[in-house]
């Protein structure tokens, strides 16, 4: 075991980590936005909307993320060509971001839905009694309270996504894990680099989980 080769490889690994973080942040932001819309659809009294959202959630929760990533990589350019009539190269990064957003949205939808349902019905009545529309009630009264309650769960889901971003190696993106593997291969020290990558994932995820637990305690008190 010789870990000394890792030091000179740091800039490359850092670039990989930047890719991982970018994918994660964009996946979370897009996933929460789309997931919130899906949750509102699922809670809506319109049967068509709520069935569509229900089917979406069930579908994406029943297939592996790896499949979604490869499928988007292969299918999105094809679909775009079909729509626009010309070749529109979108690249592995964009297709992965879209895949993460759509996949995570299914999970965030369920978190947001539970959060909204946990807010007492009286709050809805009180806001409407003051003349607020359904949209205003959701935006100003229900969702702000729901998100506060949901924060620990949203963060927990984000930690899972942080690890799952490593699946982008299938479409050739160089994230943190992939850069560690590649750098290790070059200098013939794969084991050391993979152990290092494992330690980094563990430290980040574990400390994030730890912080989430403390936050959870503070919120519930």
């Amino acid at each position: 075991m010789d870990f000394s080769d890792i030091i000179p490889a740091m800039p490359g690994l850092w670039n990989g980590m930047k890719m991982t973080l970018q994918l994660m942040v964009m996946g979370i932001v897009g996933g929460i936005a789309l997931g919130t819309i899906l949750a509102l659809m699922r809670l809506s009294s319109n049967k068509l909307l709520s069935r569509f959202a229900g089917a979406y959630v069930n579908y994406f929760r029943s297939i592996p993320l790896l499949l979604v990533i490869t499928w988007f990589y292969l299918a999105v350019p094809f679909v775009l060509r079909w729509i626009t009539g010309e070749d529109t190269p979108i690249g592995a990064f964009t297709s992965c971001v879209v895949a993460f957003m759509m996949f995570e949205a299914a999970y965030f939808c369920e978190i947001v839905r539970a959060g909204v349902q946990s807010i007492a019905k009286g709050q809805m009545g009180a806001a409407q009694a003051l003349g607020m529309t359904y949209g205003q009630t959701m935006r100003l009264i229900i969702l702000p309270q729901a998100f506060r309650k949901m924060t620990p769960l949203l963060l927990q889901q984000s930690i899972i996504l942080f690890q799952d971003t490593s699946l982008v190696y299938t479409v050739g993106l160089v994230d943190f894990l992939n850069s560690a593997r590649a750098s290790g291969d070059i200098v013939g020290r794969s084991n050391e680099f993979l152990i290092f990558a494992g330690v980094v994932y563990f430290v980040i995820s574990f400390s994030a989980s730890f912080l989430v637990k403390r936050l959870q305690k503070r919120i519930t008190v």
């Binding site: 007492a120 009545g125 009180a126 806001a127 702000p144 309270q145």
Partner: peptide, 13 residues
């Protein structure tokens, strides 16, 4: 129409 509820229903946030 003003309304006052049994459980107040102030907005806690």
């Amino acid at each position: 129409v003003g309304m006052v509820f049994q459980h107040f229903e102030l907005f806690p946030h």
